[in-house]
């Protein structure tokens, strides 16, 4: 069972429908008890960093997320859901993130033809992993051709402190981190649930992890 955390921050149904179309069993909930029963957890989210943290705190979900990660559940953060895993964001001064990944979230600087938000289809450049013998790439990117297109829709991007968690980058004015992977934690700045065949392949890899 995959628990999709519903904390009032936007479009969660697309993630659910995409996972279910791949045969996954899902539950959309904000109940920590229900989440405890799940093997996999998805933290989606669109909106503002500080508001999202406030909602997680208000609904008693901060501990649930941290516990799930500590208990080695497969954890996927999407878009804002990934950014929240970091320590802080320049979007909201003073607001602390969950801090399970080291680093901060930064903003694209518009100019010289660079429009912000970064909106539309852009490519993933996979980063070769040397984390374990025989594992050369993030398991969620398995089977994806190099430079696959995925759908982005964001003004902020993560800047991890430790570069070994970077599993893919994308070019938009700068080279930014678009996929992170650390042990049981996965994060994506784009929307796999909106990325047609490529996105469904990523989610299939996620479903097949356990």
């Amino acid at each position: 069972m995959t628990g999709i955390i519903d904390y009032g921050m936007g479009n969660i149904h697309s993630v659910q429908k995409a996972l279910e179309s791949l045969g996954d069993k899902t539950i959309v909930t904000n109940n920590p008890e229900e989440l405890r029963k799940c093997e996999k957890i998805v933290l989606p989210g669109v909106g503002a960093f500080a508001d999202a943290m406030k909602e997680l705190e208000k609904q008693g979900l901060v501990l649930a997320v941290i516990d799930a990660i500590k208990n080695k559940k497969i954890f996927l953060g999407i878009c804002l859901g990934m950014q929240l895993l970091f320590e802080s964001s320049r979007e909201s001064k003073g607001a602390k993130g969950l801090g399970v990944l080291k680093g901060e979230v930064k903003k694209f600087i518009p100019g010289k033809g660079l429009k912000v938000p970064h909106m539309g289809w852009n490519q993933l450049n996979k980063v070769i992993s040397d984390k374990a013998p025989g594992v050369t790439e993030c398991p969620l990117l398995k089977g994806l051709p190099e430079n696959s297109y995925v759908y982005f829709c964001h003004s902020y991007y993560p800047d991890p402190k430790y570069k070994e968690i970077v599993s893919a980058t994308t070019d938009y004015g700068i080279k930014f981190t678009s996929v992170v992977w650390q042990d049981n934690i996965f994060g994506m700045q784009f929307h796999p649930e909106k990325s047609q065949a490529v996105g469904l392949r990523i989610l299939k890899n996620f479903v097949e992890l356990c």
């Binding site: 936007g10 669109v46 909106g47 503002a48 508001d51 938000p117 909106m119 829709c153 964001h154 003004s155």
Partner: peptide
């Protein structure tokens, strides 16, 4: 945009 994010 404050509530739901500029991107939407």
């Amino acid at each position: 945009s404050d509530k739901f994010g500029s991107q939407c």
